[in-house]
Amino acid sequence: MSTHSHDPHAPVQEPDGTDEFEILELAVRELAIEKGVFSAEDHRRFSEWAESRTPMYGSKLVAKAWLDPAFKERLLADGTEASKEVGVNWLDPTGTGTPSDYTYFYVLENTPQVHNVIVCTLCSCYPRPVLGMSPDWYRTPNYRRRMVRQPRQVLAEFGLFLPADVEIRVHDSNQKSRFMVMPMRPAGTEGWTEEQLAAIVTRDTMIGVALPQPGWTAAEAPPRSGVAHQSAEITGGGK
């Protein structure tokens, strides 16, 4: 900026200019309501439905796949179709998906050799029917621009350090397909039920910025010191 205002009443600068798009969305929405394209209640209902999606569906998909090799095969072959088995229809609510653009869903399987992580450099493409709304940081230009070119540094900022002999495969989901990561089932979960397993498959493990750990679910408040969770064994040797 060429001029810098010291006026204490100057408007607060919003980061990333998101407010401009919010104003645009509001203007278009009001026009659409005025013209009878949809009603305010239609809009509210859609928002409520869309925002009620949670990562629970993705967790179920992963836990089910960990326990059932035949389901895992179906899930990896056709994520859209397999999602119906946990009650998610990607074609809802219009018959062709949301008025956004996703229609194809692919699950990316982590292996001892390959760690997958998702990002959308274009805007904020995210597998919402199975993970719900994306976290705020996922939509920031900082995450988007750095995950594609400095993935190891960004993962380290999330506390995830992967060994140099594991390939990090970044998926820039800026087209029609939506992706979700299927993490590896951690040791120490032998004999667990689907419900127990699903609880440790948290949102971040399905984005690819964390690994599931027995003893950690997003439903419990973290202990005061989170450092204990960064076990060297699980994160591949620490830094």
Binding site: V148, R149, Q150, P151, R152, Q153, A164, D165, E167, I168, R169, V170, H171, D172, S173, N174, Q175, K176, S177
Partner: peptide, 24 residues
């Protein structure tokens, strides 16, 4: 699929890291 070292001349990670995207 691209090698990260093909996308970024200054890529600091290991040679085996990759990135995928879709194209028409």
């Amino acid at each position: 699929r691209f090698k990260q070292t093909e996308l970024w001349a200054d890529y600091a990670g290991p040679d085996l890291d990759t990135l995928e995207s879709e194209f028409s």
